[in-house]
């Protein structure tokens, strides 16, 4: 769906901000760009809607080189969400969400219906929020509106640059879960930038690690964190936390064994092995229920590495 081919970009002198990166996010997946601050994540992401032009290489969206496409048209077809949200402070929530549909010349009634549907999608009651100004929103609510604005014209591709990084941890986890749900409902392709390892593992279908502008590793999270992970990866994820992060990349169901689990603490559907471990610690249990007739034992969990 989106593909970077050997793209580079240098600002002024010194080392390039992005250095010969080749990367693809397949249609319908969440690709997460992970890296420390200054590693070139934003620069790479902003090449996808031509807020930054590459010095070399090319970017393909839906199979077409974007370099030749009219830039405003391109951007109207790509959702863009940023850390500081950037809602237009003088417009109501509804008008903010309607930005791209208005640019596309939709009819007023269609826009109004779309605005309400999007407010419901991001879990904000339309009657209550439609006419508010951005100053009357909490940080979490503002970013929900930012997400709704990006989704307004139903673009197949979303670019998200550390959208949850400025939020407090509880709100951040809520929004991560909601993004997963919205992704499942809408099937968008998402390129998501973060410096937060846990966030990356919660969201990523595919994970790309950037370091000083270079692509360090790319693949399914489970493979990236497998035993052979190189020293840079180990450093980024933290030597001591690596084992825990690795558990976060694996499904609890993969280690389940048949048995009567009715009396055990139960894991939610789709839980990871990290969730299972935390639940055991929390409940002081040596096994947890993955399904009514399947359980995951402590011994299996620690032996599985």
């Amino acid at each position: 769906m989106i593909r970077f081919e050997a793209v580079s970009r240098r600002f002024g002198q010194g080392r390039p901000a992005v250095d010969r990166v080749t990367l693809e996010v397949p249609a319908g997946q969440i690709g997460v760009l992970l890296g420390e601050s200054g590693s070139g994540k934003s620069t790479l992401l902003r090449m996808a809607n031509r807020l930054v032009e590459p010095d070399a290489g090319r970017v393909l969206v839906a199979g077409r080189d974007i370099a030749g496409q009219p830039v405003e048209e391109l951007r109207r077809g790509i959702g863009y969400v940023i850390q500081s949200v950037g809602l237009f402070p003088h417009w109501t929530v509804a008008r903010n969400i309607a930005t791209v549909p208005r640019l596309l010349g939709w009819e007023a009634s269609r826009i109004a219906a779309r605005v309400d549907a999007l407010l419901r999608l991001v879990n904000l009651p339309p009657e209550e929020f439609r006419d508010r100004l951005p100053a009357e929103l909490s940080g979490g609510q503002a970013q929900r509106i930012g997400l709704a604005r990006a989704l307004a014209a139903d673009p197949p591709l979303l670019l998200m640059d550390e959208p949850f990084s400025a939020l407090d941890p509880g709100t951040r986890r809520d929004l991560q879960a909601e993004l997963r749900r919205i992704h499942a409902e809408t099937g968008k392709t998402i390129l998501f930038v973060t410096h937060d390892v846990e966030e990356a593992l919660v969201l990523a279908d595919r994970l790309a690690v950037l370091d000083h502008g270079r692509l360090l590793a790319e693949g399914v999270p489970r493979d990236l964190l497998a035993d052979g992970a190189g020293p840079e990866i180990r450093r980024l994820f933290g030597e001591s936390g690596l084992a825990l992060h690795r558990l976060a990349t694996r499904a609890a169901a993969a280690l389940a064994t048949p048995g009567d689990a009715a009396s055990l603490p139960a894991l939610p559907e789709g839980a990871t092995q990290k969730d299972a471990l935390l639940l055991m610690l929390e409940q002081g249990a040596r096994a947890v229920a993955v399904a009514p007739d399947a359980l995951l034992r402590w011994d299996d969990l620690v032996r599985a590495r």
């Binding site: 807020l51 951007r75 077809g77 863009y80 940023i82 949200v85 950037g86 237009f88």
Partner: peptide, 15 residues
């Protein structure tokens, strides 16, 4: 005018 607002405006495809 906050830079984030300008970034968002450009990113949504406003001329």
């Amino acid at each position: 005018v906050p830079p984030a607002v300008l970034d968002a405006a450009r990113g949504t495809g406003m001329g």
